[in-house]
């Protein structure tokens, strides 16, 4: 069924390519066609409930580095579709905003902007949603450490009276995990984040 469906989509949108997927229909869509494709999917194919918007960071050395992911559900024929769209610019990634056609995208895109730093062109109010307004980093990027980075406390007056700072979290006790590949020593379970005292020179 998945194949037949993709064929019918391909007929309509020549620019789509099929994407490997362990579950439901998944397509790759170039960023410049995303808006047009989603509008048509909503109006003509019944994919009307945007359930999720997110992105993947494939790490700094890869290009394209960021891929935006959209999951849309059809409330009539109960099927999901996944649309993946690579961001063009690796340094200042951006995608067209879907907030105009799916109001649900508004918050999801703000979240992705907050966490990944992807700019959504045409978004009505693109600002941070989970972290505070002037937080300087995008925490879900791969180079950002889990423990965090020292930055000023969100409120200056509280920082002064309570002597509070935003500090990296201590990571000495774990979580202990092993990586997927490497030498015996590297795949041995260890605290993944070494920003605290587990720096190489301290071993």
């Amino acid at each position: 069924m998945s194949d037949a469906n993709f064929a019918s989509l391909k007929e309509r949108f020549a620019y789509l390519t099929e994407r490997d997927s362990a579950d439901h229909l998944a397509v790759n869509c170039p960023a410049e066609h995303l808006l047009e494709c989603c509008t048509a999917l909503r109006d003509d194919f019944g994919y009307d409930l945007l359930v999720d918007v997110t992105a993947i960071d494939w790490a700094a050395e890869t290009s394209p580095r960021f891929t935006g992911i959209y999951h849309i559900l059809s409330t009539t024929h109960h099927a999901y579709i996944r649309i993946a769209s690579d961001c063009v610019d690796d340094a200042a990634p951006s995608l067209p905003s879907l907030a105009g056609i799916f109001p649900a995208a508004n918050w999801h895109e703000r979240e992705t902007y907050d966490m990944m730093g992807i700019r959504y062109e045409g978004h009505p109010d693109l600002k941070r949603i989970l972290m505070w307004e002037d937080y300087p980093y995008h925490p879900l990027r791969k180079e950002f450490p889990l423990a965090g980075i020292e930055v000023p406390f969100p409120a200056a007056d509280v920082a002064e009276t309570a002597n509070a700072k935003v500090l990296p979290a201590p990571m000495m006790g774990g979580p202990f995990v092993s990586s997927a590949d490497g030498t015996m020593r590297e795949i041995e379970p260890q605290a993944k984040d070494e920003s605290w005292t587990e720096k190489e020179e301290n071993r």
């Binding site: 490997d20 359930v51 993947i56 996944r82 995990v177 997927a180």
Partner: peptide
């Protein structure tokens, strides 16, 4: 690979989108 699953939870559909590069730790 990657997979998305939603379950009908009391509050609504709780979804997990898992991206794996193999191994025991999710990539995203």
């Amino acid at each position: 690979g990657e997979a998305y699953f939603e379950a009908e939870n009391p509050k609504g559909a709780l979804g997990f989108y898992v991206v794996s590069k193999g191994g025991g730790v999710p990539y995203r």
